[in-house]
Design a protein around this nucleic acid. Structure first.
Lengths: 228, 228
DNA sequence: TCAACCATTATTGTTCACAATATCAAACCC
DNA sequence: GGGTTTGATATTGTGAACAATAATGGTTGA
């Protein structure tokens, strides 16, 4: 049964996906037994997955009480934001290498998907695809380690946005991505870096840390459609 | 038994410490039963610790074969190095805030310990204290998230240095730390950033990725003195 | 009516035994 | 003699039962 790692990865991915898509609200309880049923698995595996996710700050384990979707504090939120800005802005200012032609192709394809999602008003797809754009950029200009670090930060940002997003605002400007690619192709890195800074600041300005923290904890029934 | 988390933290710290001090060579096998005996614990807890450490790339879990101290590839090594450089150099160039007076105090104290360790030719203390200097700097000028990211990168670098260190070289120049603090106090961030870049490049230049990879895997008996 | 207390229930934490798998060594065949 | 197979041994993986703990709801008393 060497596929157990595969099964755990599947469960972890499903949970991560649910967080990314903001289906799992911060604070939601994640009962082991219930998750085991949902994923047709057993408690032991669920337990490993939860431990794993807790190491990436997606889940918080409270001894004796169980696992909960993390509720990042305003301070943690600011730190995650700032860290992501540091990494992405600095990398664009002095990328490790130029964009490869295949990289450009991948970025263009992602941008096309972005346009399509925008067209259909598919907010969930927008989130996914927008994240993919940033990650591909880092992978192209940076390296795997930075990519996995940023991957985690993006996931944490998803929780942050769910908790602190100001009402009646849209956070992601896909037009920026277009301009970003143009600047990179022209090798205008200083300008690209500046645009990225503004882009991420734009997200930050959508947050309100004084918001009423009554983010209702959604029952994990939400998860059932994720995995039959 | 709410102290189980505490016990696991203790074990994980001991293992991390052993890696940091280069007592545990990359590739060493970490048998669950043996670790359980060494730490007067049981397999279940050891297992959790190993899973946890594997998430921070210190340990590699091979399904069906067990846990091993990770052997970072040359590519991974380069990526870790580059990532750390990106974070620390960029942060010094544009720190989030100025050094606090207590921060300066802490840094000076660390530097004193560094001098002392240098005096005594205590290589292990040097490693610890040097790491503490960098982490404190990040904590002061940056934030907690960046600190924990860097903490992990430093640990990975410990493995990298063990594997790829060129013979007959010393990797860490503590004199740089002194100059660094002076520049920061003078708020000459551009110069401080440059010095940090050179400092980290200095470490990199001590590495030889073509070295014979015969890093012997030390038996984990090494660990016994760590925890009676 | 409210608060504190206690019993009940549900959930998490731990342990153990067993199954599956890999490792090692000796025997075997080519 | 070298390489392969096969069996014995050790280690990891899995599942289930049990213990410990926290949440729940109802009762009692002021």
């Amino acid at each position: 049964m060497g596929s157990s790692a595969r099964e755990e990865a599947r469960i972890a991915d499903a949970l991560r996906k649910a967080v990314l898509e903001r289906k799992l609200a911060p604070g939601s309880k994640l009962p082991e037994e219930e998750l085991a049923q949902i994923f047709r698995s057993n408690r032991a595996k669920i337990r490993r997955v939860l431990l794993s996710l807790s190491r990436s700050h997606i889940v918080t384990l409270e001894p004796g009480r169980g696992a909960f979707v993390s509720r990042p504090s305003p301070q943690e939120a600011r730190d995650v934001l700032a860290s992501r800005r540091l990494i992405e802005v600095s990398l664009l200012a002095r990328p490790y290498r130029k964009l490869s032609t295949q990289g450009v192709t991948r970025l263009r394809r992602i941008m096309a998907q972005e346009a399509e999602a925008h067209e259909k008003h598919d907010a969930i797809a927008m989130i996914h695809v927008s994240g993919q754009f940033h990650l591909t950029l880092i992978e192209e200009l940076g390296n795997e380690v930075l990519k996995s670090i940023t991957e985690e930060l993006i996931l944490r940002m998803s929780l942050i946005i769910t908790m602190y997003e100001r009402h009646n605002t849209t956070c992601c400007l896909s037009s920026d991505h277009h301009d970003l690619l143009d600047l990179l192709l022209a090798e205008k890195y200083a300008e690209a870096s500046l645009l990225m800074a503004r882009h991420l600041e734009g997200i930050e300005s959508c947050l309100d840390f004084h918001r009423d923290p009554v983010t209702a904890t959604i029952l994990s029934q939400i998860l059932q459609p994720v995995q039959g």
